[in-house]
C-alpha cells in the first residue's frame, strides 16, 4: 500500500512538472544571474527555465548567426551589440503595450542611442570597464591609462588584459586620445606601434579568469569590469579599481527579444519580471553592477551604494561607450589586433 502511494505521488509530481505552462530559453553571460531568481520566475509563471551561457558579445553574435537563432527567446548583449544585432535582423520588436512594466525604465535609459525607443530591449545592468591594481604590489598613483599601456617597472610583466578586441582597442584609443573608429592613417599606425610596445609588459590575455588572476595574485594589474573588481575585493584581493583621467569604458547590458523566439509570450513575461525593482535589484546585489530601473533603492545591499567601483572620484575622466565602426575601418582594427596577437 505504501509503495502504491509513493508511486502515485511520483506520478502526480511528474504530471505536475509536465504541465508547466511552457519553456523559457535564455542565452546569457556566465555568472551574471542568481539561480534563486530564475527559480522564482519559474515558480511564479509555472515555466521551465533553460539557460545557456556565452563569454563575449562576439561569441553571442557568432552563435546566433551560425544557426542558433530560433532556439533562444532572450539574450543579454551589450550596448553596441544590440545595435549590431538589430542591424543584422536578429531582434524582434516589442510592440507598444506588450510590456506592462516598461514605464519602470529610468528616463536616462529609456531612449538610448543603441536602441532608440527601446524597440527591442530593456536595461539589464550597466557599469564600467577599466582596470584594477593590487595595492600590495604597487602603491603609486593609478589614475592614468599608463598603468596598462606604459606601466612603471614594478608592474611590467604582471598585467592581464581582457581577451576582447573591443575593450582593448577602446581603452587604447582613450589612452592615445584618438577616436575609437579612427580613419586617420597616422593615428592608426601610431596605435599599432603603441600596442606592440605595450604588449611587452603584458603577461596574459584572459577574460574568463580576469577576476581569478587578481584574487590569486598571479596578476598585479588587470583590465576588468567594475562588478568583477568588486567581487575580487570581496574575495579578499587587496585591489583598487581605477578611474583614469583619460577616461574609461561605460557599457550597458540589455535583455533583448530574439527573432523567431520559440516562447515569445514567456520572453515578454521574463522581461516584465526583470523590470520589477525587487527582481532586478537581486541581480544587482549578485553581480555588483547598477540597474537601469526606478525604485530599486530599498532592495539593494547597502554596501553597494558605498562601493568604490560604482562611485567615480570627481577628477575621473569621462565614461564612453564602445563605438561600432564601419566595415573598412573595422578591417584595419582587426589587422592591428592580429598583429598584436601573432
Amino acid at each position: 500500500m505504501k509503495k502504491l502511494v509513493t508511486t502515485a505521488a511520483a506520478l502526480a509530481l511528474t504530471a505536475g512538472m509536465a504541465s508547466a505552462e511552457g519553456k523559457l530559453v535564455i542565452y546569457h553571460w556566465f555568472e551574471y544571474i542568481p539561480q534563486d531568481l530564475l527559480d522564482k520566475f519559474a515558480e511564479e509563471h509555472d515555466v521551465e527555465v533553460v539557460m545557456d551561457t556565452y563569454d563575449s558579445n562576439e561569441a553571442l553574435l557568432a552563435s546566433l548567426k551560425a544557426g542558433a537563432i530560433g532556439t533562444y527567446d532572450v539574450a543579454v548583449p551589450g550596448d553596441y551589440m544590440v545595435q549590431i544585432m538589430a542591424g543584422e535582423g536578429l531582434l524582434d520588436t516589442i510592440e507598444e503595450g506588450e510590456l506592462a512594466n516598461k514605464g519602470n525604465i529610468q528616463p536616462e535609459w529609456a531612449d538610448p542611442s543603441f536602441d532608440p525607443g527601446r524597440a527591442h530591449s530593456i536595461p539589464y545592468q550597466w557599469g564600467s570597464t577599466s582596470f584594477a591594481v593590487n595595492r600590495d604590489d604597487f602603491d603609486g598613483p593609478i589614475d592614468s591609462t599608463d598603468i596598462l599601456f606604459n606601466p612603471p617597472a614594478a608592474l611590467s610583466g604582471k598585467i592581464n588584459m581582457l581577451d576582447s578586441q573591443g575593450e582593448v582597442m577602446a581603452m587604447a584609443a582613450l589612452h592615445m586620445g584618438i577616436p575609437q573608429c579612427s580613419t586617420d592613417r597616422e593615428q592608426l599606425k601610431a596605435l599599432n606601434a603603441m600596442l606592440q610596445e605595450a604588449k611587452q609588459h603584458w603577461a596574459s590575455f584572459n577574460s574568463d579568469t580576469a577576476k581569478e588572476v587578481l584574487v590569486s595574485g598571479d596578476a598585479s594589474v588587470g583590465q576588468i569590469y567594475d562588478g568583477f573588481a568588486a567581487k575580487a575585493r570581496q574575495e579578499g584581493a587587496n585591489i583598487e579599481y581605477a578611474f583614469p583621467k583619460q577616461g574609461y569604458i561605460v557599457w550597458m547590458d540589455n535583455v533583448v527579444l530574439l527573432k523567431d523566439a520559440p516562447n515569445r509570450e514567456n520572453a515578454l513575461k521574463f522581461m516584465d519580471f526583470l523590470l520589477e525593482p525587487e527582481n532586478i535589484a537581486a541581480v544587482t546585489n549578485y553581480a555588483r553592477y547598477v540597474a537601469g530601473v526606478d525604485g530599486v533603492g530599498p532592495f539593494l545591499d547597502p554596501e553597494l551604494a558605498k562601493q568604490p567601483e560604482s562611485n567615480p572620484p570627481a577628477d575621473a575622466g569621462k565614461g564612453v561607450f564602445i563605438e561600432v565602426c564601419d566595415q573598412q575601418t573595422q578591417e584595419v582594427y582587426d589587422q592591428i589586433w592580429t598583429n598584436l596577437k601573432k
Binding site: 562576439e58 557568432a62 584572459n206 596577437k341
Partner: peptide, 26 residues
C-alpha cells in the same frame, strides 16, 4: 595555450576560433 600560455600569442586553434567567435568574424 589560452589558459597556461596566457593567450599572448595565437596558436592555430585560437587563430581559427577568433575567426568565428572573435571580433574579426571572418
Amino acid at each position: 595555450p589560452d589558459l597556461l600560455g596566457g593567450a599572448r600569442n595565437f596558436m592555430i586553434g585560437s587563430l581559427i576560433e577568433e575567426q568565428f567567435k572573435g571580433n574579426a568574424g571572418n
